[in-house]
């Protein structure tokens, strides 16, 4: 006895999708991508459930798993965000090799065992589903498996309470008042007034050029923290300053010329190469 050709075609196509989804789940660098791959695989599995006569489970798979559980995953991914844990670089020595060896060994053993079981004949669910799949399941759940059902209900409640207990944070001390917070700030000695503006030299008016302190040294505080961390601070102290002095010395020539704008623009573009020319 075999299944229909249509189901076979569907299996081979969707099985490939399912395996690809599974591999994607494992190999994707970002958790969101993994979650999406997993969702794909789950939907394929839902289709397989439906194809095999497990209509109720197929629907539950889509609604509960793909719908609710995966959404929960995505929420947690959002909460946690991108971390160093997303790196695919292995840190434990021998872990990859051990994984491959045990994984292949386990899989080969499992599949070999299945192959040796000679499961050529199958009964099919025609008779079992004759009264309707949902009704059949319901009859079993509320008779034979009623105790297991009750206990899983208790388990779910326990899990829900457990999740609340785990994530709940109790405030153990009084919230600080605004005055206390202000005093705290003053006491910690951070910069209270606004930071000084960059590019205090009008001729080099740009956010990536630090302002100069009275002794001529640049002040890091004047540049945006993001630019600082990216290393995109343009330092015009030192050699560029001599260039500026030359410019000032030649101010008369400059004032005599008719076309001051062009030189201004090249200086404003501001690369040190340009300044050196």
């Amino acid at each position: 006895m075999t299944t229909s050709t249509g189901e076979a075609v569907q299996f081979w196509v969707l099985a490939i999708v399912a395996v690809l989804g599974a591999l994607g789940t494992v190999t994707m660098r970002k958790a969101v991508h993994s979650a999406l791959c997993l969702a794909g695989t789950m939907i394929v599995l839902a289709v397989f459930y439906l194809a095999q006569g497990a209509y109720f489970l197929g629907i539950v798979q889509i609604v509960v798993y793909t719908g609710a559980v995966m959404m929960l995953f995505l929420f947690v991914v959002m909460l946690v965000g991108i971390t160093a844990a997303d790196s695919l670089k292995e840190t434990i020595r021998g872990q990859r090799v051990a994984t491959v060896v045990t994984g292949v060994g386990f899989g080969v053993l499992l599949i070999a065992g299945l192959a040796n079981a000679h499961l050529s004949a199958f009964t099919g669910l025609g008779a079992a589903n004759s009264g309707g799949n949902v009704e059949g399941l319901a009859a079993l759940i509320f008779t034979k498996y009623v105790w297991a059902f009750e206990i899983t209900g208790a388990l779910l409640i326990t899990a829900a309470i457990g999740a609340m207990v785990l994530t709940h944070r109790e405030r153990t001390e009084r919230a600080a008042t605004q005055r206390e917070m202000a005093e705290q700030r003053v006491r910690s000695g951070v910069q209270l007034p606004p930071l000084p503006a960059p590019g205090v030299y009008a001729r080099h008016n740009a956010v990536d050029i630090p302002g100069l302190l009275p002794d001529g040294t640049p002040s890091e505080l004047t540049v945006n923290a993001t630019l600082r961390s990216r290393g995109q601070v343009r330092d015009l102290s030192g050699e560029p300053l001599t260039r500026v002095r030359e410019l000032e010395d030649g101010a008369d020539d400059y004032l005599d010329q008719d076309r001051p704008v062009r030189r201004d623009t090249s200086a404003a573009n501001g690369s040190s190469e340009g300044a050196a020319q």
Binding site: A22, V26, T99
Partner: peptide, 14 residues
């Protein structure tokens, strides 16, 4: 088996 291998190689708890 793929899932098991994933548990073994991935570091992100999620």
């Amino acid at each position: 088996t793929i899932g098991a291998a994933g548990v073994l190689v991935r570091k992100n708890a999620i």
